[in-house]
Simulated scan of single mutants.
Amino acid sequence: MKVKTKSKKVNKAWLNDHLTDPYVRMAKKDGFRARAAYKLKEIDESLNLIKPGQLVIDLGAVPGAWSQYVRRKFAPKDAGVGGAAVGELNGAIIALDILEFDPIEGVQFIQGDFREDAVLAQLDAMVGGRPVDVVVSDMAPNLSGIESSDAARIEHLVELAVEFSMAHLKAEGALVCKVFHGSGYSQLVELFKKSFRVVKPIKPKASRDKSSETFLVGIGPKNR
């Protein structure tokens, strides 16, 4: 009984935090599928990464808030009203996730596991040799609670995102990648520093204070 009571208290506290969260309210008002849109918005506005006419890859795209944000950046100013912008689109967005994705007009989607070669081949085919401007990755594994195991899973996804970015980004292209403070974090910072000319860690205001998540931004792959 004690365990159930504690669980109920935790769930009630989370629900209260969620319902009173200003970013949750803003997302509802602005028509975004999740508060995560404001994390990318803050990163983008501080570094000026996403511009009309680009090709952007959205990894770990579900529920679609980041693709929505990019879609609005690519839409004519008078079209970006409520939900995902519709109509004319100046740019291209390819989204990928292991989960099902509720369609967004103008966003191409691949459902599959980014760790699988066949899924990567699908993504490569959809890119079609075009140089990529920005890769954004909100990917995170299912966590087991075992720190060393979870750190290894997170590191593997980040390494794959970096590897993909190094193969596809333009000389001035950028990767935005979710990581977590804790075991393995310093190694991922070093990986970014080895791979990109400019590296910036950013903890957006929309990231919850209790969360260990942060974002690493790499600009300008060194192999270009």
Rank of each mutant, 00 (worst) to 15 (best):
L15P: 02
K203G: 11
H156G: 03
S149H: 13
L157W: 09
H156W: 10
V119A: 15
F196L: 11
F32V: 00
I154A: 10
E88Q: 06
V217R: 01
G82A: 04
A206I: 09
V70R: 05
D17H: 11
V107R: 02
D113Q: 14
D102I: 12
S165Q: 07
N48P: 04
E116C: 15
L216C: 12
G31P: 08
V56P: 01
G218A: 03
D97L: 05
V119I: 15
A65H: 08
N16G: 01
F180N: 03
G83D: 06
R208M: 07
Y23C: 14
D102G: 12
S211G: 08
V189H: 02
E190K: 08
G173W: 13
M166L: 13
N223C: 06
K193T: 07
A125P: 05
D138A: 05
M139K: 12
P22Q: 07
S186Q: 11
R153G: 02
A125Y: 10
Y185V: 02
A85Q: 02
G64T: 11
V86F: 03
W14C: 04
V56D: 00
S46Q: 10
Q122S: 15
K41T: 00
M126T: 06
R130G: 03
D113F: 05
E45S: 13
S67I: 01
L169N: 09
G145R: 00
D113E: 07
F114D: 11
E100V: 11
T5S: 09
K4C: 01
Y185K: 02
S207K: 01
Q111Y: 02
W66K: 13
E159Q: 12
D17V: 06
K203N: 04
F196Q: 07
V132C: 07
I98P: 04
G80I: 00
L157R: 06
A167M: 14
S207C: 09
L175Q: 10
V70L: 05
